[in-house]
Design a protein around this nucleic acid. Structure first.
Length: 851
RNA sequence: GGGCCCUUAGCUCAGUCCGGCUAGAGCGCUUCCCUGACACGGAAGAGGCCACUGGUUCAAGUCCAGUAGGGCCCACCA
């Protein structure tokens, strides 16, 4: 028997302080602790996105993470044991860059470890070069600080995460899982090492994956270069990259291009370098572009790579990893020339220069030699950048680890198996799958990341064989090959002839993130947990990383388990500013600082705002919505207080027609909220609940409060009290996933335990209290009558408690029959002292005369 | 170049799947009311060629075709 609420309801309930009151209690009681005795059928498991801890916190973080929590709290109330871990993505280039900026350091792998190194308190202008081990130490110190910031925000926001299940993508567990999965794929020949042309960021000096590319429009100039064709003919070739002329390996045109048909199979001579190159045809040649004849260089862009591969052209690579042109001896194999002396003299001018510097010099040289035709023609074209980079990517050839992509059809089939919310997001996945080129390069030439658990043999001459890896054994994992020797070797053989060399690289961050289900569910380490949580129920994430995180996770689960990693993917939208641009991380202002928002509008207010964002739909950041959320929370507090004080110890049954009408609407609401939340459409659920709640306060409460105040034992009074008790309990539960703090507070006034572990209301239970003839319309009509009476008072500019002498209601007979039963409630709510009369008519009309 | 989504009141959005009363809500605005849950409140009101053009239909915000604008994803960038 719950204690009487009267004693527990505060005189003046307020929102302030509810977070500080309840959050520690939830934590202390382990309310969201995962109970691993539950079976897979009883569990709802969530593959939480581990946020990259490198950026400034902004409203978008609260937005999408609230969405997931709404689902988690709902599923928990539906009786599911929710498996809701949280990860930190502290692995990868972004964090590495952040740590470098924060500490004012830069890694120089050639430096020895300095055990006494301490970074200056204020980051210096010029970064201090430090060793790789020193840098890793800094990361280990700084990253937890970054994570603490996020943890503070998440727990304040009321995320019902089980914080004992926290993981990091650089931690030893994630490292071990990444390495086990990697070695397994190598053994099954699903991962392999190869030298290949690779998109390369010359500033960060690392390979960049297709998924991290971004096109940017940049200005450039077309220059028209004169090649010498057969029999001295002049061939005009347009290019934006004249500096790559010495890397030219062929000229190409479309097979149907009449202007060049007679030249296919012939040779041309490059100007200045005198290199003989074939004239070839390929479908990708575009007669509309420039002269229709293009030079193929190794490598200027990804089309060059396609041409080079498909036409089996020779390699004449010049661009180095730092973005400069490497030294070349002209006249030697690979660089044959009709005139090696001129070629060398020309090339020496640009050798060692950056591609940009070389471009200017090459144009001058060509001009001086009379090999340029016409003026530069400025264009703007899309150039590939690393999404966080500053200079265009170059293409260099190096040794990299690749994961083979599954067959396209299989990937598309997985995409169809997955339930997408909203469904149209599947198209993005399919677009990406259909555009895949080559395999997935998972190598990064970085320092802060999961190392490859491999070494390479060194022969007697001291040459490293980078294509014959020595694999770590599973019992060694996690392993850092730069500090541990491979099986069968002693540390003294490191970097020695007939010894070994460590793989110098680390894995791409997605190579680890793609294993998030494996990491959290205990794959290969905790088979019992794995059996209770995998395949997971839900992957919530943003649409921008469908092509990366979602896609790569599907690939890994496909290989490892021949299944999907989860049944459902809920894709949230972005928070955008009023210009429809993604809310910029740099445009910081007080209004969109998360902690300020939470303090100003309360957590429940902020969560209300977030819940407006429907799955997959971007939402404009609007401070007004936060105010509304706060208002709703306050209203819930006050209305609950009132309803509970009236219904204290209610023992009767809802027998009055108006009361039963309310329950009809309530049951329908519960049904709609349930089906919406089952579809991850939390926005609709709260919208419907709110649309029920306000008229409940304004009309129903006003109508019945007089009756509920009545004498104990009176049937009408008992009916109103019983109905209020049912209604307020149900409403509080429906709001609970959205407004966890205020609902928990109200719940504590009249119930034991937490609302967040209570059973979500069922429509059938409510319907068991009503009869078929009951109709919600009665309440709607009664509300209209009440509204009409208020209108008269408003028009007369008098108080709502002004007395009404008489009321005459005209309306359809069916409506009137019910309304007559509400007469007493009208009297109380409308302050009607005189007669209330009814007469039949077509439309509802109300005439009220003030006293 | 291909694709997806969006366009409804000054603002932010429901309603479109499955066509059906006079197109809804909140914010903002105007006027009024301190009534015994709430003034961090309440009441009432003004405000809309549902982007445009055609079609289907007894009936179109809703279905079909096209156009324009915005956003995003993808693409071979000489």
């Amino acid at each position: 028997m719950p204690p009487s609420p009267g004693s527990r309801i505060p005189e003046k309930p307020v929102l302030e302080g509810l977070e500080d009151k309840w959050q520690p209690i939830w934590e202390e009681r382990g309310l969201f602790r995962f109970d691993r005795s539950k079976t897979r059928e009883e569990v709802f498991s969530i593959d939480t996105p581990p946020p990259t801890v490198s950026g400034r916190l902004h409203p978008g973080h609260m937005f999408s993470y609230t969405h997931t929590d709404l689902i988690a709290r709902y599923q928990r109330m539906r009786g599911k044991e929710v498996f809701y871990p949280m990860g930190w993505d502290d692995n990868g280039l972004n964090v590495e860059r952040r740590v470098q900026l924060m500490t004012g350091t830069i890694v120089d792998p050639s430096l020895p470890y300095d055990p006494d190194f301490v970074p200056p308190s204020k980051a210096p202008k010029r970064p201090i070069p430090i060793s790789r081990p020193n840098f890793l130490e800094l990361c280990e110190r700084v990253v937890p600080e970054l994570e603490a910031e996020y943890h503070q925000l998440w727990s304040r926001l009321g995320l019902s995460v089980d914080w004992s299940l926290t993981y990091t993508t650089i931690g030893s567990h994630a490292t071990r899982i990444s390495q086990i999965a990697f070695l397994g794929m190598v053994k099954r020949d699903l991962a392999y090492r190869a030298a290949a042309p690779t998109l390369w960021d010359v500033d960060m000096k690392t390979a960049v994956a297709q998924a991290e590319l971004e096109d940017r429009e940049v200005p450039s100039d077309y220059r028209r270069i004169v090649f010498q064709g057969p029999e001295g003919a002049q061939l005009l070739v347009d290019t934006t990259r004249p500096e790559l002329l010495p890397a030219c390996v062929a000229l190409v045109a479309h097979p149907d291009d009449a202007r060049y048909q007679h030249l296919f199979g012939e040779q041309a001579l490059t100007p200045l370098f005198g290199v003989s190159v074939p004239i070839v045809s390929h479908e990708l040649g575009d007669p509309e572009k420039g002269s229709g004849l293009a030079m193929i260089c190794t490598f200027g862009d990804t089309t060059d790579v396609i041409w080079w591969r498909e036409l089996a052209l020779p390699l004449r690579a010049l661009v180095q990893r730092d973005g400069t042109l490497r030294p070349v001896n002209w006249g030697t194999p690979g660089f044959e020339s009709d005139d090696p002396t001129t070629a060398q003299k020309t090339y020496d001018t640009i050798s060692g220069r950056s591609t940009k510097q070389a471009r200017g010099l090459m144009i001058e040289l060509l001009e001086a030699a009379g090999k340029l035709v016409g003026e530069p023609r400025p264009i703007t074209h899309a150039v590939k950048f690393w999404e966080n980079g500053n200079r265009p990517l170059e293409i260099v050839t190096s040794n990299q680890w690749f994961i083979r992509y599954p067959e396209r059809e299989q990937l598309l089939k997985r995409g169809k198996e997955l339930n997408w919310y909203p469904d149209f997001m599947r198209v993005r996945y399919e677009n990406w799958v259909n555009g895949l080129i080559g395999d997935w390069n998972i190598t990064r030439q970085r320092f802060f990341g999961v190392p490859f658990p491999v070494w390479y043999p060194i022969d007697l001459e001291g040459e490293v064989d980078f294509l014959s890896p020595i694999l770590a054994t599973d019992d060694m994992l996690p392993v850092d090959p730069t500090t541990t020797a491979p099986p069968g070797f002693d540390e003294s053989a490191r970097n020695q002839p007939n010894g070994f060399a460590a793989d110098p690289d680390v894995m791409d961050t997605w190579a680890t993130s793609s294993l998030s289900p494996q990491i959290v569910c205990g794959w290969s380490t905790d088979p019992d947990l794995f059996g209770r949580t995998f395949p997971m129920d839900l992957r919530p994430q943003a649409h921008e990383i469908i092509r990366t995180w979602l896609f790569s996770t599907v690939v890994r689960a496909h290989y490892e388990f021949d299944s999907l990693p989860w049944a459902n993917a809920a894709i949230s939208g972005f928070v955008v500013d009023p210009d429809r641009k993604k809310l910029s991380k740099s445009a910081a202002n007080a209004a969109d600082d998360p902690m300020t928002m939470l303090a100003t509008y309360g957590v429940d207010g902020v969560r209300y705002w977030a819940a407006q964002g429907r799955p997959g739909i971007d939402m404009v950041f609007d401070e007004g919505q936060l105010k509304i959320g706060r208002r709703l929370a306050t209203k819930l507090l006050n209305a609950s207080k009132f309803a509970l004080s009236l219904s204290d110890g209610a023992k009767g049954q809802p027998i009055v027609a108006l009361d039963r009408a309310l329950l009809v609407g309530l049951a329908a609401l519960v049904e709609e909220a349930t089906s919406s939340l089952d579809r991850f459409d939390y926005a609709r659920a709260i919208e419907r609940t709110e649309a029920f709640f306000w008229p409940f306060c304004d009309d129903y409460l006003e109508l019945v409060k007089g009756r509920a105040y009545g004498a104990e034992g009176d049937e009408g009074t008992e009916s109103a009290r019983a109905t209020l008790a049912i209604a307020i309990k149900t409403i509080v539960q429906l709001f609970a996933p959205f407004l966890p703090y205020v609902t928990e507070e109200v719940w504590s006034w009249f119930q034991e335990g937490s609302v967040h572990r209570s059973a979500f209301p069922g429509a059938d239970e409510i319907r068991s209290r009503i009869r078929d003839a009951d109709d919600f319309e009665l309440l709607v009509t009664a509300g209209q009558v009440l509204s009409a009476i208020r209108k008269v008072k408003t028009a007369a500019q008098v108080s709502m408690k002004a007395e009404v002498a008489s009321v005459h209601v005209v309306g359809p007979a069916a409506a009137l029959a019910g309304l007559e039963s509400v007469e007493g409630d009208f009297r109380n709510a409308g302050v009607i002292t005189g007669a209330i009369t009814f007469s039949a008519g077509d439309e509802l009309q109300v005439e009220a005369i003030l006293a």
